[in-house]
Design a binder for these strands. Structure first.
Lengths: 217, 217
DNA sequence: CGCTTAGTTGAAGCGAATCAAAACTAGTGG
DNA sequence: CCACTAGTTTTGATTCGCTTCAACTAAGCG
């Protein structure tokens, strides 16, 4: 993804950070001081309402960029709360230093743009899920999404098994349902033989065909 | 927004196009040949499912950029169908020529990035609407959104009046409801004195306070 | 082991969808 | 200018999927 030069440049200004599950990395509204990259684990991008309702608007997987990059706008505040869904390892760097780096390596900015475009596409796909899909379709879509993401990150689903990085409550919060409904739908998939689960979080086997079918489109 | 130089450069390669309401500009899946800017009118960004369900994932107002810009990826296909919600006037330019222009004016790319970031933020806010808001909140949020957008484009809502660019069906499609529910909610707001309407599309007066209150957050 | 938190399951209620039809608009041609 | 038609919007009655409320069970942790 990044060139050798860009990586060494990044390493020079970066700092490793560890967050344990549930810990908040940045809070919506706070001053945005740094960017980061996910090294290991999964983070939640949360938009919260004053009345307590929240919506997880995105997940952060290994290699994902954290923060919205905008050149010449260092005054910005964080638009989302970022919380560790699992234990989370990230690699952070100060905004100013990163901006200098993009001056030396303009291609870096183009790559950030490409990532932002991908995120936009994903967000809009999720809008379709939230606006038009049924409960069963939402859960199936989510499961496939996570399976693919963890497969892409190497370890995990080679034999069709993977770990859910989110609790039922978080899943519900991401796909616009309640905990109970998510639980019920997962049970349905289990009964139908599309899933095998051990201990709530570990998917030991899943029938991709069946889930894709159930996901709707 | 754009500098004098950038504008003259754009004008040199651009071509004016007119679309009448309902006409399709580009179709999801087609080869992406050009970018464009909205000059006048409103466009719909549509994601469609094979089974007929659709979701309007975004609206295009005057001065909005059309197309997802990605340098060195000229092979891309359109991710969304774009249809004229009202009569629509756009200013289009070939992808290749535009890419050349960003080489001469690198700041252009930075500006595109900034726009993409804004769109991403809007898309995620809309995710909250679709995932967590009630019917009344959705309609109120939409009305404020349109009022502000048309106010920003000069003409229109100085005296608190503006034109709805979308049919009830389109509104429903954008906020994840049905036509009937949208209609009912608008009637409620009328009865409550938060809106005055003439002929289904023309909002002659609206109580911003009340709508913001009803929008939830 | 007991305590706390997370997940499952059941019953009842409700908000929005669906189904159905009337009222209104806008466009067309006589 | 009016009658006619096609499409949009409104309104009403009913249904249904998900939420809510409540209780129970399983799992993680001192």
């Amino acid at each position: 993804m990044l060139s050798r030069d860009e990586l060494t440049g990044l390493n020079r200004i970066s700092q490793r950070k560890m967050l344990s599950r549930g810990q908040v990395y940045v809070l919506e509204g706070d001053a945005a001081l740094e960017y980061a990259n996910v090294v290991a684990g999964v983070g939640k991008l949360i938009r919260g309402a004053p009345d307590g309702r929240t919506q997880i608007v995105g997940l952060l997987f290994p290699s994902d960029f954290i923060g919205t990059y905008e050149k010449h706008r260092s005054d910005r505040t964080e638009a989302y709360t970022i919380e560790a869904a699992t234990d989370l390892e990230i690699c952070s760097f100060p905004r100013g230093k990163f901006a200098q780096l993009t001056d030396v390596h303009p291609a870096l900015e183009t790559k950030i743009l490409a990532r932002t475009v991908d995120e936009l596409r994903l967000a809009r796909d999720w809008m379709v899920l939230l606006g038009r899909k049924t409960a069963a379709e939402r859960v199936a879509t989510f499961l496939i999404y996570v399976a693919d993401k963890t497969a892409a990150n190497g370890c995990g689903s080679q034999n069709g098994s993977f770990e859910l990085p989110l609790s039922r409550a978080d899943i519900a919060d991401h796909i616009g349902l309640t905990v109970e409904t998510v639980s019920r739908q997962i049970t349905e998939f289990r009964k139908a033989g599309a899933l095998e689960i051990s201990g709530a979080r570990k998917i030991t086997r899943y029938d991709r065909e069946a889930l894709v079918e159930a996901a709707g489109f």
